[in-house]
Design a protein around this nucleic acid. Structure first.
Length: 571
RNA sequence: CGGGAUGUGGCGCAGCUUGGUAGCGCACCUCGCUUGGGACGAGGGGGCCGCUGGUUCGAAUCCAGUCAUCCCGACCA
């Protein structure tokens, strides 16, 4: 490709509306342009990256026995009603009405469609297992699109759906997909960690996410992982064991204490001269519009996803002070589980508390030295609703948990019969009995993977694409296009490279060298061949974008050297 | 939806407080010069100042409404 003909435009300045590195670089380097919030045009450079990633996905999915198909973006309301998700999925489901007044939705995911298809096409266990996938634009009307391609409303996704006759089959497919995903991301040059996660709106029993770990840099998820075993989980799912609460006998007897204006856990600990872990903290949440009290050890935080699951609620949020007074008649700051007539959920951490401090729903008073089933009933519902923290003990070994940010690029779910039962998608087993399909689903954010790669690999000058997903492998830069020898040499090397299968761009623009070098760095061509002053010695320069030395190479060896560099692991 | 901010040529911004015919840098076009890390000189083109309404002799500037975008939270590939 000739740069003079390539449809791209680099920007010297960072666009004002881009916050994230990947977003900034994608816009600056001419990969994407925003159409409207969360919706982007992929320019030719970007499309090449997308095709590279998609290609790797196709190869690995096919190798794992999956078959590609393509389903429609527009989906009819009736199918979503069959699973009940027309109501449940919420506003994220982009609903539209056609000219006949029929309702539909732009597909945010395709469980309903694939299940309806397989229900009609597959009747016998003999036709199972099967795994079908597509790479397709998805639309989710996100509450708040952000971070450029990391969270768009329209995005490219690979989604696969497996159908099995039994759990063992599902397990096999699940493992196959886990392996395929590991291969896919490895081949994309991305190190990922498979972590346990909450299964959210897609549902199902078991799910794992594939995270590109970004340390403290960026990413929307917190991942907790063990420093000595392979336990890793999204913070919305991570379990942990904690150091015990420090309640050692400061209050041998229960006693009501005046605590005027002492409301926060911090203030209480100071007031009583105790550790925060010796306090039982009471919080009011609104779960599906009803107030609920959540109890947790004072030094700990609630994990809202866990609480939501423990309650079986669809929607949950913390209540404001005014709301607490209004819905419960209780006084914020002095809340406690005693004599409350709303649902109470206790975190496991409170069970161990002895002679602790808690509110008793009396203004300016707390109870010290409280004990369960003495002064206060232990709530019936006890669950893990606690946010695991770094430093906690791993749930599976004596190791310690550490925390890192992560970008979720893939997700695999065991759906079981969640969809097939509701949609009456059955097959006949070997005994002639009708059974619902056992399903799994497996997603990869294709466009997000590209953005995640940039988040992970960039420097102050631009993108450092892994070779496998770079839009081109190399760029040939003639320093001065009006120098005929430089130009003809550059052309020759360019053609040699193309002939040897290196995807190459020649920067034939009549620009000063500084401009070309800056653009090459920004766009992130993994290898640059510079044809300039060293030509007098019969040499050109070969340089890897990630750094390392500039190699002076005799021109007839240039193509071979580039090929070598491309195959090596250090680009 | 709650909290915060911003809308001025393609991009980044100033001007607004204190109303008076819209400005800078980048990019773009022409000519010259230059060619190893975003050169330089000269000339040039391009703006419904987000939109609607109001105040005023006069509004980018003041007022009201509205729309859009971005950041923080609930969502997730």
């Amino acid at each position: 490709m000739r740069m003079t003909g390539l449809f791209f435009n680099t920007l010297r300045e960072t666009p004002a509306d881009a916050e994230t590195v990947s977003h900034q670089l994608l816009v600056r380097a001419g990969y994407v342009r925003k159409l409207t919030s969360g919706i982007y045009t992929y320019l030719p450079l970007m499309l090449r990256v997308i095709k590279k990633i998609s290609g790797i996905i196709r190869e690995e999915m096919d190798a794992a026995g999956a078959q590609e198909l393509l389903m429609p973006i527009l989906q009819p309301e009736e199918l979503w009603r069959e699973t009940g998700r027309w109501e449940v999925y919420g506003k994220e489901l982009m609903r539209i009405e056609d000219r006949h007044g029929r309702m539909g939705a732009l597909g945010p995911t395709h469980e309903e469609i694939i299940t309806a298809l397989v229900r009609d096409e597959i009747k016998s266990y003999r036709q199972l297992p099967i795994n079908l996938y597509q790479i397709q634009d998805k639309f989710r009307d996100e509450i708040r699109p952000r971070f450029g391609l990391l969270r768009g409303r329209e995005f490219l996704m690979k989604d696969a759906y497996s159908f099995d006759a039994d759990e063992a089959g599902l397990e096999e497919n699940y493992q196959k997909m886990a392996r395929a995903y590991t291969n896919i991301f490895n081949r994309c040059g991305l190190e990922t960690r498979m972590v346990r996660s909450d299964s959210g709106a897609i549902g199902g029993s078991v799910s794992h996410e594939f995270m590109v770990l970004t340390g403290t840099q960026s990413g929307e998820n917190d991942v907790l992982y063990c420093d000595s075993c392979d336990y890793a989980a999204n913070s919305n799912r991570a379990e942990s064991r904690m150091p015990p609460a420090d309640t050692n006998g400061k209050f041998p007897e229960a006693k009501e204490v005046d605590t005027p204006g002492i409301k926060s856990i911090e203030d209480l600990a100071g007031f009583f001269g105790i550790e925060q872990s010796a306090i039982c903290k009471s919080l009011i949440y609104i779960a599906d519009k009803k107030p609920v009290m959540a109890l947790i050890r004072g030094d700990r935080a609630i994990e809202e996803t866990k609480l939501k699951n423990a309650l079986g609620a669809d929607d949950i949020r913390i209540a404001g002070d005014a709301e607490i007074r209004e819905c419960t008649g209780l006084e914020p700051g002095f809340l406690g589980p005693a004599g409350v007539n709303i649902k109470i959920v206790g975190d496991e951490s409170i069970k161990e508390l002895e002679n602790f401090v808690t509110g008793i729903n009396k203004a300016d008073k707390h109870l010290s030295g409280a004990g369960w089933n003495r002064e206060i009933e232990l709530p019936e519902t006890i669950a893990d609703i606690r946010l695991a923290q770094p430093g906690d003990i791993c749930p599976e070994c004596p190791g310690k948990l550490e925390i890192t940010r992560g970008i979720e690029v893939g997700n695999i779910f065991k759906l079981g019969t969640k969809y097939s039962e509701k949609m009456k998608a059955n097959f006949t087993d070997e005994n002639g009995r009708e059974k619902p399909f056992i399903m799994g689903c497996y997603g990869i954010g294709v466009s997000r993977t590209a953005a995640a790669a940039i988040e992970r690999y960039h420097d102050k000058d631009g993108i450092l694409w892994p070779m496998a997903i770079a839009p081109y492998h190399a760029v040939v830069v003639p320093v001065n296009v009006s120098d005929e020898l430089q130009m003809s040499t550059a052309e020759k090397i360019y053609n040699d490279l193309l002939d040897s299968g290196i995807e190459t761009v020649i920067d034939d623009r009549d620009e000063r060298p500084g401009v070309k070098f800056k653009d090459a760095d920004l766009i992130g061509f993994p290898i640059r061949i510079t044809v300039g002053k060293t030509l007098a010695e019969g040499m050109v320069e070969v340089k890897s974008r990630v750094g390392g030395e500039v190699l002076k190479v005799p021109l007839e060896q240039a193509a071979a050297r580039v090929r070598e560099l491309k195959e090596s692991k250090n680009v």
